[in-house]
Design a protein around this nucleic acid. Structure first.
Length: 370
DNA sequence: GCCCATGATTGTCA
DNA sequence: TGACAATCATGGGC
């Protein structure tokens, strides 16, 4: 059904005719009487609406999640909770995820507030409209102020129902965002092939002392597109797994040793296949492992098809163009006695007292030292 | 679905 | 605090 200008005019004309009718006062008084009688029933139906517990829950949740209430940098409460859930020490590494989470939460917050504003505006407009209508009608029929209040409260109730739906969907959106965020942290993704290659190259070229310094870790992290913590994890896992199963890793070691050798003979220091610093190589720094000692130390020279990376290093040190032979203490070959005396990875060099491999000439982060 | 590889976590130690 | 060792949990190949 459409309302045309013509029909509106007709209605206005009828209303005017009614208002001017001689029977109008009599009709009005009758209506007042009826109204008086039905007044009780209206009052009885006008019950006090108790606060909806579900609405309260939604409000509390939105407040806790930082969607409702005062803004503190885009959902601070939830971000803090997420930070706490991330396990404390790793929070700096999750800054990317956190900022992502925060920005998404801010988006939800923005949408929620703009929708809320729209609803409130619409509610006010509609209330004003209805009030105007009732005032208009009060000229032709008795409209008590109570009735107007009742109408207003009905409208508000309707709109708060809509608002509750909005709050509900907002809560759902926040929950989904949160679960996704937590899942993302929980999930493990393999590093890229290139990243693993970089890490392996570093590991095998520093086999004698595979303990990258903080700077080296940062550099590796940057190169691999991972965090420093992940680099630390990787080296921790690698050292342990290498130690546990040297045989299995020998082939891998050979591959990287060859790579390193090739990169050296092709002219120079590849940044990742950097030589071991004098301290670790010169002191026979290859870590002493049960079994690994034989593997590396027992080999008299590079006469095999495959050779361990540590020996490639020593060879490089001895005959490389820049040469680290001087710092090797007289000979390119490892001294088994020295090796044993130096013990394992840990004992061979202590990170604080010995120049870290990464601080060596071909270090990942520095080419200038020594 | 199983199995292995691997990144992450946790507890312990120096 | 960093390293190690054990373990968990997930990805990916088969």
């Amino acid at each position: 059904m459409t309302i045309t200008d013509q029909s509106l005019d007709e209605a206005q004309a009828k209303k005017h005719a009614l208002n001017c009718h001689r029977m109008k006062p009599a009709l009005f008084s009758v209506l007042c009487e009826i109204k008086e009688k039905t007044g009780l029933s209206i009052r009885s139906s006008q019950e006090e609406e108790p606060v909806d517990p579900q609405l309260m829950r939604l409000d509390n949740m939105l407040l806790a999640e930082g969607v409702a209430g005062p803004e503190k940098g885009g959902g601070s409460a939830a971000a803090a909770a997420a930070a706490a859930a991330s396990g404390g020490g790793v929070s700096p590494d999750n800054s990317i995820e956190h900022s992502d989470y925060r920005s998404k939460l801010a988006q939800i917050r923005h949408i929620y507030h703009s929708e809320l504003e729209k609803y409130e505006q619409a509610c006010n407009e509609f209330t004003t409209h209805v009030m105007n209508l009732l005032r208009e009608q009060s000229r032709t029929r008795p409209v008590a102020p109570k009735e107007m209040e009742r109408m207003v409260s009905i409208i508000h109730r309707k709109f708060s129902a809509i608002q509750m739906q909005l709050k509900q969907s907002t809560c759902e959106a926040v929950m989904i965002l949160r679960s996704r965020f937590l899942d993302a942290r929980r999930k493990r993704r393999n590093f890229s092939k290139q990243a693993t290659e970089v890490l392996n190259e570093y590991f095998y070229s520093h086999l004698s002392n595979p303990y990258p310094s903080e700077e080296a870790k940062e550099e590796l992290a940057k190169k691999c597109g991972i965090t420093v913590s992940q680099v630390s994890n990787w080296f921790g896992n690698k050292r342990i797994r290498y130690k546990k199963n040297i045989g299995k890793f020998q082939e891998e070691a050979n591959i990287y040793a060859v790579k390193t050798a090739v990169s050296v003979t092709q002219g120079g220091h590849s940044r990742t296949s950097s030589p071991t610093p004098p301290s670790s190589a010169g002191s026979g720094g290859s870590f002493n492992l049960s079994g690994s000692g034989d593997m590396f130390l027992g080999m008299p020279g590079l006469n095999g098809d495959s050779y361990p990376a540590s020996q490639v290093e020593s060879l490089r040190h001895a005959m490389g163009p820049g040469g680290y032979g001087d710092s090797l203490g007289g000979g390119p070959m490892y001294s088994p006695r020295e090796m044993r005396a130096n013990g394992g990875w840990q004992e061979a060099v202590t990170p604080s007292s010995v120049t870290s491999p990464t601080e060596g000439p071909g270090s990942v982060h520095s080419d200038t030292s020594n």
